[in-house]
Design a protein around this nucleic acid. Structure first.
Lengths: 129, 129
DNA sequence: CGCTAACGTTAGCGCGAACTGACACTCGAA
DNA sequence: TTCGAGTGTCAGTTCGCGCTAACGTTAGCG
């Protein structure tokens, strides 16, 4: 089951989810917010008090983070408590591991090709694909 | 050696480096480029041919990725070959692991607090900090 | 009901960033 | 040195996004 349209759709969906995660985490303040609620559950007001921007801005950041699945919201009276959602980082974790291993692999292959070139004396070595 | 100004500077430097990494990876095309050069070393023209945007745009993307330390450039005649640089992902890897473990920890503590509340019958349990 | 606290939402503004097109540069070959 | 291939760089435009201010909403109290 490789290369079928259903697999393409799944790939596209993963990419879209990863894109949302990355765009959410690309903002320094959103990373700071995530760090806060990763250590303890906090109310929107408490989170906003930790920064020097308006509560409106923080609320929008919380909306983005929640939309990316990086946060979960729990209501308690008029207050809204937020905490980090570890599973939201799974997609990014997969991407990172994949890129990491692939990068190490291409580096290893280049070293081998370079060594082969030194031994063989300039033969064709760039056909590895 | 904790909490001293030198540590703050190091923290700030790490955050800035992480910010550059995240902003570079926030762009879908840049992630696609990184995937390409993570599997094999490619020239700028070959990379550009893989997308439907102008070579100018791809060149700018390559500049950003190189600036973030995610790519290395190697010149061969008029061609410029690029390949992924695994160490550039180290900072993001650290952030991810930290956020992951912290999120799991706060989730575990909340479950314990909830269980204690069920057993104790509504006693004060939200002082865990 | 009126009132307040705690939030989210909308409209509008300003900045940064991604894209295109034109130009400049650097090799290698004739 | 003249030419073409392969790339980087510089304006200029468009567009997304983070911010603020004002308004709307919901929960709890008297």
């Amino acid at each position: 089951m490789n290369g079928v349209p259903a697999d393409q759709d799944e790939r596209a969906r993963d990419e879209q989810a990863l894109d949302e995660t990355m765009r959410a985490l690309a903002e320094p303040r959103r990373r700071a917010i995530l760090r806060l609620v990763a250590h303890e559950e906090l109310a929107a007001g408490e989170i906003a008090a930790a920064f020097e921007v308006s509560r409106t801005a923080v609320s929008q950041h919380l909306t983005v983070l929640k939309g990316a699945g990086l946060l979960v919201e729990r209501r308690e009276g008029t207050r809204r408590l937020y905490r980090a959602r570890p599973e939201g980082l799974a997609g990014l974790r997969d991407f990172l591991d994949e890129a990491w291993t692939a990068s190490l692999d291409v580096a290893r292959r280049l070293v081998e090709a370079d060594r082969a070139q030194l031994v063989g004396g300039g033969q064709e070595v760039r056909d590895a694909g």
